[in-house]
Simulated assay, not measured.
Amino acid sequence: MKKRLLALVLICTMAFSLSACGKKEDKAETKTEKTDKTSKKKVADIEYDVDEFVKLGEYKNLEITLDGEYEYSDEGFDEYVSKTISEAAIYVEDKDANEIAEDSIVNVDYVGSKDGVAFDGGSAEDQLIDVGNNSSATGGGYIEGFTAGLVGHKVGEEVAYEVKFPDDYGNADLAGQTVIFTFQVNYIAKAIDSKKALTDEIVSDKFGYDTVDAYMDSLKEKYTASLENNLKSDKQTAVLNAVLNNSKVSKVPEELLQARVDMYLSVYDKQYQSYGTTAKEYFESMGQDYDAYVESMKTSIQESTETELILEAIAKAEKIEIDEAGYKEFIQGVLSSSGATDETSFYEVYDVDGYTGERYFRQAYLTQKALDFCIDNANYTGAPAEAE
């Protein structure tokens, strides 16, 4: 069985500010109208007995094997440092290099001109160029031939040559035109890809730490935290999959599944409404099949809701209940990560017929508690002794 995520994750990974949506309440709405809405939802509340749909298998004392990296080692830390530095894409002047090669990274100022006059957007200073890939050293390509004339020239030289813009270039004034780009070669650069290449000056300039040692101390803290996060994540994934493999859902209550689908589509549409369009209109404008997307999304929701039902059944079997203090901390974390401030307005974003937003998040908290119970009661091989 493939890995599944809780339903909460499916909704909350959508990238938009829920606080903005929550503030769009119609101020002209009367108290009576609000009461009617509340009454309607109360009458239509979805009810089901989870035991009718879930057959639980083993979920306690599971034997779990973990094979990740969870304990600090000098070798692992060195690899982490090298990866972090490499991903930072730091370049400094290579004082031993003087001539531009085909694979050089070179720092230049350049000016683009047409008929002897510099054109808008064609000039820049202190640019790191990847000559071999005809691109910026930090990503983003140039028009064909932009860097072709630099090879063989030396630091300090001024280099000028013709470059032709493509016929379909976005700027009509330049499309298909041949222009002159003039480059001032400032220096040839080299990548900083190891701790040995760092200096206090580089660390201060690029990372904001006074010394290399101070920067290493910060990376050691981050590396240690990443190991702890890896262990927590791998435990959750392994235990969840074991629980799902051992249990079976005969079917998802139709009303519950429809509520989940309605909730997802409603939240998704609110994201695009904030930009003056709808999800369907956006997909169609991008030449994509919205209906096909919805069908695919329904499959994911079906799976996540099955996961939720299994965990709900465990919570029921173990008499796990929502503790209000714990839930308060949970929902405050959700509010903070979404940018929302008002709890009531936040819930309303997720309200659908038969299932309120508040009920949804309380259920999400309960199912997470059930999963935590399974994690705490599993037996682990491959985890640090103190973490078991």
Rank of each mutant, 00 (worst) to 15 (best):
residue 288 Q to N: 05
residue 146 F to M: 04
residue 170 G to T: 03
residue 179 V to A: 04
residue 256 L to G: 05
residue 229 N to Y: 09
residue 1 M to Y: 12
residue 330 F to R: 04
residue 49 D to R: 07
residue 220 K to W: 04
residue 361 F to I: 06
residue 309 L to I: 05
residue 346 F to V: 08
residue 380 Y to G: 08
residue 3 K to I: 10
residue 195 K to S: 08
residue 48 Y to I: 06
residue 81 V to S: 03
residue 120 D to G: 07
residue 155 V to G: 13
residue 287 G to S: 10
residue 283 F to C: 06
residue 297 M to Q: 14
residue 226 S to P: 11
residue 387 A to E: 14
residue 207 F to M: 09
residue 135 S to W: 00
residue 346 F to G: 07
residue 71 E to R: 08
residue 161 Y to E: 06
residue 267 V to K: 07
residue 39 S to F: 04
residue 382 G to L: 06
residue 285 S to R: 09
residue 166 P to Y: 01
residue 103 D to W: 00
residue 39 S to Y: 00
residue 21 C to N: 09
residue 277 T to N: 11
residue 22 G to V: 03
residue 324 E to N: 11
residue 223 Y to R: 10
residue 185 V to Q: 14
residue 154 K to C: 14
residue 115 D to K: 15
residue 124 A to F: 01
residue 168 D to W: 08
residue 122 G to E: 01
residue 225 A to P: 09
residue 138 T to G: 06
residue 263 M to K: 05
residue 167 D to W: 00
residue 187 Y to K: 15
residue 211 T to R: 02
residue 385 A to H: 05
residue 383 A to P: 13
residue 158 E to V: 15
residue 353 D to L: 11
residue 135 S to A: 15
residue 268 Y to G: 05
residue 197 A to C: 00
residue 196 K to S: 12
residue 348 E to M: 04
residue 296 S to V: 02
residue 70 Y to P: 07
residue 7 A to V: 12
residue 205 D to C: 00
residue 281 E to W: 08
residue 55 K to D: 13
residue 319 K to C: 01
residue 51 D to W: 01
residue 139 G to A: 05
residue 357 G to V: 06
residue 242 A to R: 04
residue 170 G to E: 13
residue 79 E to K: 15
residue 376 D to Y: 01
residue 246 N to C: 02
residue 230 N to T: 10
residue 13 T to Q: 14
residue 58 E to V: 00
residue 152 G to E: 12
residue 252 V to Q: 13
residue 248 K to P: 12
residue 115 D to C: 08
residue 367 T to A: 08
residue 108 V to D: 05
residue 268 Y to P: 00
residue 350 Y to M: 05
residue 191 A to K: 09
residue 367 T to K: 06
residue 345 S to D: 11
residue 348 E to K: 13
residue 183 F to D: 07
residue 216 M to E: 13
residue 293 Y to E: 11
residue 305 T to W: 08
residue 96 D to F: 05
residue 55 K to W: 01
residue 250 S to F: 08
residue 49 D to Y: 06
residue 139 G to H: 03
residue 388 E to F: 00
residue 311 L to R: 02
residue 299 T to E: 15
residue 31 K to V: 02
residue 351 D to G: 04
residue 330 F to M: 05
residue 86 S to Q: 10
residue 99 E to A: 14
residue 309 L to W: 10
residue 227 L to T: 10
residue 356 T to A: 07
residue 262 D to H: 07
residue 144 E to I: 03
residue 159 V to T: 08
residue 312 E to H: 02
residue 254 E to D: 15
residue 232 K to A: 14
residue 200 D to M: 06
residue 318 E to N: 04
residue 125 E to Y: 00
residue 48 Y to C: 10
residue 100 I to N: 13
residue 208 G to L: 07
residue 241 N to T: 10
residue 162 E to M: 01
residue 79 E to A: 13
residue 99 E to I: 15
residue 331 I to N: 11
residue 278 T to A: 08
residue 381 T to K: 15
residue 34 K to M: 00
residue 173 D to K: 13
residue 158 E to I: 15
residue 57 G to D: 03
residue 284 E to I: 02
residue 304 S to C: 13
residue 36 D to W: 00
residue 245 N to D: 11
residue 41 K to N: 14
residue 125 E to V: 01
residue 85 I to H: 07
residue 290 Y to C: 04
residue 314 I to E: 03
residue 351 D to F: 02
residue 227 L to C: 12
residue 5 L to I: 11
residue 303 E to F: 08
residue 253 P to R: 02
residue 17 S to C: 15
